[in-house]
Design a protein around this nucleic acid. Sequence first.
DNA 1: CGCGGCTTTGATGTTCATCAAGTAAAGTGG
DNA 2: CCACTTTACTTGATGAACATCAAAGCCGCG
Lengths: 231, 231
Amino acid sequence: MESGSKSCNCELCQLKSLFFGHMSVNDLNGICQIKEEKRYFKGDTIIMQDEKITGFLYMKQGLVKVSRKSDDDKDQIISFSKPFDFVSLLSIFSSDRYNYSVTAVEDSTVCILDLSTVKFYAQNNAMLAFDLLTKVSEANDKIILENLEIKRKHLKGRVAHVILYFADYIYGRNEFELPVSRREIAEYIGMTTENVIRTLSEFRTDKIIKIYGKEILITDKKRLQDISEFG
Amino acid sequence: MESGSKSCNCELCQLKSLFFGHMSVNDLNGICQIKEEKRYFKGDTIIMQDEKITGFLYMKQGLVKVSRKSDDDKDQIISFSKPFDFVSLLSIFSSDRYNYSVTAVEDSTVCILDLSTVKFYAQNNAMLAFDLLTKVSEANDKIILENLEIKRKHLKGRVAHVILYFADYIYGRNEFELPVSRREIAEYIGMTTENVIRTLSEFRTDKIIKIYGKEILITDKKRLQDISEFG
DNA sequence: CGCGGCTTTGATGTTCATCAAGTAAAGTGG
DNA sequence: CCACTTTACTTGATGAACATCAAAGCCGCG
């Protein structure tokens, strides 16, 4: 079923099913021909706030932060997202410019399709559009729920929550290297850098975690969960 | 083109274009036959968190709050929404139960369609699915941006922001009756009821607003905007 | 008429931001 | 490669912002 001239492996991509499970092999090849796979290094900007939206992006690998710079020039981090979370979905169907920036916090690989092409297919393939609808809805729900969760906690609970977020949701283990700076944690939970540091130090003093620079090791998970839940 | 037995006026509804601009007259009549128009009074619960999602709702008239009760039994208000904001879109395509409650804060009229029917149409009508995609994306974007805006402000800025939100966005005039209690404002901006009241009193003392119970009159809008922006 | 919820104000204490100062780490240019 | 600059991290001291507690008035409703 090789039809195009360019080598194309989208059919084998494990992410195919997420959006394109309901596309014909022909259409998939059509999309595949125009895709561009791009690699970003930690710190690279993938999407810049206020830029015109021309691409449909999805992450194959890595970790990114979604953030927004407000009028007073301060960054607020909206979410840390890994593959299958599809952060670029945030405003591509509702705006012509990005409301948020996306930055790699770990080396990341992204597939880029031409947005108008994807829109064209979506407008002609109800199942594809419906799949996108589901994904957009899921991605947004996750962000809103997570932000509510953080909002109802105090400083310590928020910091505990973030550590658990990385341990359980992002890495799936109790020892990991923090992919972000103390300041970025602060921008995420809406507290100051100093207080994030102070809280981490306090957790260390209380033997809840061990810290070696960016390395975090959770030694008393139960306590951490209690603090997150409220304490 | 009268085909059904039930009287049906969806074709005349001004909201038709929002979702169903790309449906055939026949399909529209099909949907219209099963629609139920329902009236709610101030205080009524329209959607209950954790309930099974069976309906596709949209507001024709009124004002509602979208809120979530957390584990510790406290309410957090996510947004105040008026017609065309389509709050029920929040999780109907990503979850089988509601993540949020919706409550009328003014008398409200809502149209209810059977969700599985709407899904069926969406899965067979790409333009309809695409329209829904746009709406879902818009509704979520608005919520996320608004919450970021509030998050970066302090108490006074938040209260000022809420007053301006009602004045400019909801009512379009500088004199209006607050549709919500002080406590609900507090639940929305993430502060205590006492401090919301204190701040309102302070604005009154400073001759920025006048207060007669629930009636608010903005007398110094420039100041209020400055405080909201940051002061 | 009395009860419960909403509103208001004051007093008090806690939480958190800010300021300051210093160390460590990492990038930059000669 | 080293001096230099910048950025990240850390801790302490102080004061501001905010929550909590308490008490009382108000209003609607059974």
